[in-house]
């Protein structure tokens, strides 16, 4: 069996990852997987996906047709679109109810597996010391805190170890995201600078006369042409 230290660390990591990447996203992903198998809602889900595609397709077709020039075709597309949309709404609302109940069940299961497991471990190994601190290294009250609640004095309890892991993971996460943002920001600036060399003049304020002359001139020309 792998070291308890490692297990607690991995568990904290998993909890943190789930929290930061969104429980919702996970729920949706699992919902999609769930509907791929032979489940009661699978058929309705496939229907919903199909209808959604249909609505989007009809909408693009409708927007591509000019209502002034081809009113009949546009109106027929619009009727089909409205009808499909109504069907989609209906099936969505019924599926949402099932999804809500599935979500709550899965969330409960998820909690049991992660936080629940964490609590179980904490209770099971409450009295077990994680590791021993060298004697005299820290004052006695600090030792008492570190062994809180039930581990022997002079050692680190599983609860404290869990908290420490969580804090470290959080700090690492913050540092990582800051670092990535910095790198992306730098790359973005570098990329823009190359284009900015040509774009700069547009941003320089030009005297009013020359800025208005051009558009008016163009307008006048186009009017003459029409």
């Amino acid at each position: 069996m792998p070291s308890l230290l490692l297990i607690v660390f991995v568990l904290q990591l998993v909890i943190h990852l789930i929290n930061s990447f969104g429980a919702n996203a996970l729920n949706n992903w699992i919902w999609t997987l769930y509907n791929k198998g032979p489940t009661p809602t699978a058929k309705a889900y496939k229907e919903q996906v199909r209808l959604r595609r249909e609505v989007v397709k009809l909408r693009t077709q409708m927007n591509a047709t000019s209502s002034q020039d081809e009113f009949a075709k546009w109106a027929k597309l619009r009727r089909a679109h409205d009808k499909t949309l109504a069907e989609y709404e209906k099936i969505s609302s019924s599926l949402n109810a099932s999804k809500a109940s599935f979500d709550s069940t899965f969330t409960f299961g998820r909690y049991a597996c992660t936080n629940g497991l964490r609590l179980v471990l904490q209770f099971w190994y409450a009295k077990q010391p994680m590791y021993w601190i060298p004697q005299g290294w820290l004052p006695s009250y600090v030792e008492w805190i570190l062994s809180f609640p039930r581990a022997p004095r002079g050692s680190v309890s599983i609860q404290i170890w869990g908290i420490a892991c969580a804090s470290i993971i959080q700090m690492l996460h913050t540092a990582l995201t800051a670092g990535i943002a910095l790198v992306i920001g730098k790359n973005g600036k570098n990329g823009k600078n190359g284009k900015n060399g040509k774009a700069q003049p547009q941003k320089v304020p030009v005297p009013a006369a020359s800025s208005t002359e051009l558009p008016k001139g163009e307008e006048g020309e186009s009017k003459k042409q029409s």
């Binding site: 081809e70 009949a72 027929k76």
Partner: peptide, 10 residues
């Protein structure tokens, strides 16, 4: 005439 044709069709 254009719109009449559209009406007839629709």
């Amino acid at each position: 005439k254009k719109y009449l044709d559209q009406i007839e069709e629709l």
